[in-house]
Amino acid sequence: MKKRMSFRFSNPATTTLQINYEINQCESATIGFIPFYGAVGKERIYKLGVLDNKIVIDVAAWDKGLYKLLLYCDGDAEEMRSVLIE
Results as ranks from 00 to 15, higher is better:
residue 36 F to G: 00
residue 82 S to W: 11
residue 51 L to R: 13
residue 19 I to H: 04
residue 29 A to V: 07
residue 35 P to S: 10
residue 8 R to Y: 10
residue 15 T to H: 04
residue 29 A to D: 02
residue 77 A to N: 13
residue 66 L to T: 13
residue 75 G to N: 08
residue 63 D to P: 13
residue 43 E to L: 11
residue 53 N to D: 15
residue 6 S to G: 05
residue 7 F to C: 08
residue 14 T to Y: 10
residue 52 D to S: 15
residue 9 F to G: 00
residue 35 P to L: 13
residue 64 K to H: 14
residue 9 F to K: 02
residue 39 A to M: 05
residue 81 R to I: 06
residue 45 I to H: 05
residue 78 E to W: 00
residue 31 I to P: 04
residue 10 S to C: 03
residue 11 N to R: 06
residue 54 K to E: 15
residue 10 S to N: 09
residue 38 G to Y: 08
residue 49 G to V: 00
residue 80 M to R: 13
residue 16 T to V: 14
residue 51 L to A: 10
residue 76 D to F: 07
residue 59 V to W: 03
residue 62 W to T: 08
residue 57 I to D: 06
residue 3 K to G: 02
residue 13 A to R: 00
residue 39 A to V: 04
residue 49 G to E: 11
residue 63 D to G: 08
residue 31 I to E: 06
residue 84 L to N: 07
residue 22 E to A: 12
residue 14 T to L: 08
residue 71 L to A: 08
residue 8 R to F: 03
residue 60 A to C: 00
residue 29 A to L: 10
residue 83 V to C: 12
residue 71 L to M: 09
residue 80 M to H: 13
residue 11 N to F: 02
residue 49 G to H: 07
residue 23 I to H: 05
residue 20 N to P: 09
residue 29 A to M: 09
residue 83 V to K: 03
residue 7 F to E: 04
residue 11 N to W: 10
residue 78 E to R: 05
residue 7 F to D: 01
residue 25 Q to Y: 04
residue 12 P to G: 04
residue 71 L to W: 00
residue 28 S to C: 02
residue 11 N to L: 01
residue 11 N to T: 01
residue 53 N to T: 15
residue 63 D to I: 00
residue 56 V to T: 15
residue 68 K to T: 14
residue 30 T to W: 11
residue 57 I to K: 01
residue 66 L to V: 14
residue 79 E to A: 10
residue 58 D to L: 06
residue 56 V to C: 03
residue 32 G to W: 00
residue 12 P to N: 09
residue 16 T to P: 08
residue 49 G to S: 15
residue 78 E to S: 06
residue 22 E to S: 11
residue 79 E to R: 03
residue 70 L to M: 12
residue 75 G to A: 06
residue 18 Q to I: 14
residue 48 L to D: 02
residue 6 S to A: 15
residue 66 L to Q: 11
residue 25 Q to L: 07
residue 2 K to T: 00
residue 72 Y to L: 07
residue 57 I to A: 05
residue 10 S to H: 01
residue 79 E to K: 09
residue 20 N to Y: 15
residue 58 D to F: 12
residue 75 G to P: 10
residue 32 G to T: 10
residue 26 C to G: 05
residue 7 F to V: 06
residue 18 Q to W: 03
residue 36 F to W: 06
residue 22 E to R: 11
residue 84 L to A: 03
residue 64 K to I: 03
residue 15 T to R: 09
residue 11 N to I: 04
residue 23 I to A: 07
residue 46 Y to W: 09
residue 66 L to I: 15
residue 9 F to S: 05
residue 45 I to N: 07
residue 63 D to M: 12
residue 16 T to H: 14
residue 63 D to W: 11
residue 54 K to F: 15
residue 35 P to N: 09
residue 77 A to G: 06
residue 44 R to H: 01
residue 63 D to Q: 14
residue 20 N to S: 14
